[in-house]
Amino acid sequence: NFQCCLKIDEISATSDVFIRKKDAEQHAAKLALEKLGIQPVDDATASKQEGKNSRDLTEEEKWQALKDRLCTTFSEKFLLSNCPLVAHFTAAVQRKGVNYGKVPAAVLSAYDNKIVSLCKSINKNSGKDLALSLQLVLRAAKSCSLLDSPSDSLWIGKKEPFSEETKEELIKKFTGKENDAMEIESCSFQAVYIPCSSEKSVESLTMRIGPQEHFMDVMAYHLGAGDSSHILMSRTLKKAPLESRLY
């Protein structure tokens, strides 16, 4: 049996006891929403509010919706409003060289639920095929006038650079620090390394992430990938600890 305690800033909500971990988490989330005074909206109402359901859109409208969503993820308003992708954009504005301000396309195609669902509406196989959803996102980005994704590149940025204010806000939001020194301490996490050759053995791996490093870059090093844009990530693994993914 599972019980979940959800903490958001000063608010905490403890669920009833459930057989499934997922149900405990959902119940804790429901209680937290009630405490926060947020009224959950069911899917049908949400679709009505958003206008057309993505299934009702024409092919062209689906592509436009995907391009619009990609542009939204780069908008300063979106990034500064508790966006779950903030760590990736913080790394983007600290990256040096040609990929400054860019995020790996796979981050957007895997982590943003709205993008995931728009890709599925364009091609239902993209839900299972990570390379296909990446391909759809890149195609949309490369044809979008506001975004910058050079040919043969797996990175997406926006043509107009982030303002200094946004850069500072992103760093402050992520680190809780006022300056851009990224003085957060090093951290490490455990991973399981699964070689593609069955002749090699599965290994436990400890990854150390320095104060100025981003976990995707460290992972790219361990995977022998050129850079973090070459990493594909799975959807979250069912029956595994929260947010576990295969990279």
Partner: peptide, 20 residues
């Protein structure tokens, strides 16, 4: 509800699930 929390609060929301 969980997706709403995650969308709104991202990594600020901490789920601590215990086996009871």
């Amino acid at each position: 509800p969980k997706s709403i929390i995650n969308k709104k609060y991202g990594s600020k929301a901490q789920y601590i699930t215990t086996d009871v």
